[in-house]
């Protein structure tokens, strides 16, 4: 089970900062939950630039972005 980070309801740029913390920690497989398209775009752009592949999944909780880098 990959780690899930809850970034819902957070202002810019906190979802990206939370993602960056995972990147710095060397986490290669995690999920981040956001609730706005803006956060989704920002996190996707940031993690893609860091070499992660992003899979998007709409759940009841919000938009779940699964980040994976192998």
């Amino acid at each position: 089970m990959s780690k899930r980070i809850d970034a819902r309801g957070l202002s810019c740029p906190q979802p990206v900062v939370l993602s960056a913390q995972q990147v710095v920690a060397g986490n290669l497989d995690f999920e981040i939950v956001v609730d706005t398209e803006v956060s989704c775009e920002n996190v996707r752009r940031f993690l893609s630039a860091k070499g992660y592949r992003i899979a998007r999944n709409e759940e009841d909780d919000g938009i779940v972005l699964r980040a994976n880098r192998s």
């Binding site: 810019c12 740029p13 990206v16 900062v17 960056a20 775009e41 752009r45 940031f46 630039a49």
Partner: peptide, 19 residues
Amino acid sequence: SRFCTMGALRDIFIVRDLH
């Protein structure tokens, strides 16, 4: 486009992003 004059500078400082 999410155009933001403050974010333009902030993203440079925090994540080195020029978007």
